[in-house]
């Protein structure tokens, strides 16, 4: 804080010279652009989505076809041609991908984080960390192709009646994709646990296993939890892998029923891509439904990001 004041004092005489003014306003505009971006996203999604619902369309001065808000939020059939917009069919598929990828990514990610922070030698760490970064760096459309061409045929050996497009393969690749996210954030939290706590554990005669599971993990719990939420939010917003691998037929499936993972369905993001690749005209009902789904998606991921941020801040143990 004091250095800030010092710098302000040292530069006070020159701060309104034309050159300083010009450069400072440029930098300020750059920073303000992020706020403009957010406002445009929110504004655009709300105005376009409100033209979609019969409840709000008159306010926007839009005549013509609209959809019922309650039907949209509770309906379980998504059929563009018969004008049935039940977003629950899409949300159920998104939930399935989220559950499925969570089952893979959360345990593996935390185990990776424990290994990297507690067990791995510096040499192993310097090899494993870039390798894990590669997992997150592969384009998602490539993951989708892998799921469709290599993983689904492999799964067919175990489950003979699995569909060409299925939620299982999509969940597996999305899970692999988000492992690095869980691992790196959790590892940061575990590395932040002070060594004194570990040494106190060893002093009591605890083994490395006891220290890892009994001291480090509980102490880093808030960071681990926040990494879970962030990774799941990423899985929800994941687009190309599910578009390629999960299928094109909207279906309402029960996310808790393991058998339904062998079928294909249409997650929210994939539905948006499908709407755009089909020939919809600007201004039509289908075009506006795009923004309605976008709004739901944006709100869900925003809430999850905020929760994750809140958990990381509020429950962080300060040493």
């Amino acid at each position: 804080m004091s250095t800030d004041d010092l710098e302000a004092d040292l530069t006070r005489n020159t701060e309104n010279a034309p050159r300083e003014l010009l450069t400072r306003s440029f930098f300020f505009l750059c920073a303000a652009l992020s706020v403009v971006t957010t406002l445009s996203i929110v504004g655009l999604l709300i105005t376009e989505a409100s033209k979609f619902f019969s409840l709000t369309a008159p306010l926007m001065g839009v005549a013509g076809e609209t959809a019922n808000l309650v039907d949209f939020l509770t309906g379980t059939t998504w059929q563009i041609h018969s004008k049935e917009f039940g977003v629950m069919a899409l949300i159920s598929a998104t939930l399935m991908v989220t559950f499925g990828s969570a089952i893979i990514a959360l345990p593996l990610g935390v185990a990776t984080a424990i290994y990297l922070s507690e067990y791995a030698s510096p040499q192993a760490r310097s090899l494993l960390k870039p390798a894990l970064e590669i997992l997150a760096g592969v384009p998602t459309v490539v993951y989708g192709f892998f799921a469709l061409i290599y993983i689904t045929p492999a799964l067919r050996v175990v489950f003979p009646d699995i569909g060409t497009f299925n939620m299982l393969s999509a969940s597996i690749v999305v899970g692999i994709m988000i492992i690095p996210m869980v691992a790196s954030i959790s590892e940061d939290a575990m590395s932040a646990v002070p060594d004194e706590l570990r040494q106190a554990g060893y002093g009591m005669g605890a083994t490395k296993f006891d220290v890892s599971t009994g001291i480090v993990v509980p102490a880093a719990l808030s960071g681990i939890f926040s990494s879970f939420i962030l990774a799941l939010s990423r899985a929800i917003g994941e687009t190309m892998a599910v578009t390629v691998a999960a299928g094109a037929q909207a279906k309402f499936l029960n996310p808790l029923n393991p058998a339904s993972y062998l079928e294909g369905a249409l997650p929210m993001t994939a539905a948006m891509v499908q709407l755009l690749t089909g020939d919809i005209t600007g201004g039509g009902l289908a075009y506006r439904s795009l923004f309605a789904i976008g709004l739901v998606l944006f709100v869900i991921t925003l809430i999850m990001n905020i929760i994750s941020d809140f958990v990381a801040r509020r429950y962080r143990e300060v040493y």
């Binding site: 992020s34 706020v35 445009s40 996203i41 891509v273 976008g294 991921t301």
Partner: peptide
């Protein structure tokens, strides 16, 4: 606010940015 905003923008799905491009 800018600070929080930027970290939230980093979490917005890419398909929503596509909608932004399309709409704006």
């Amino acid at each position: 606010f800018i600070d929080v905003n930027i970290s939230n923008l980093a979490g917005v799905p890419s398909v929503v940015y596509g909608l932004l491009g399309l709409g704006v």
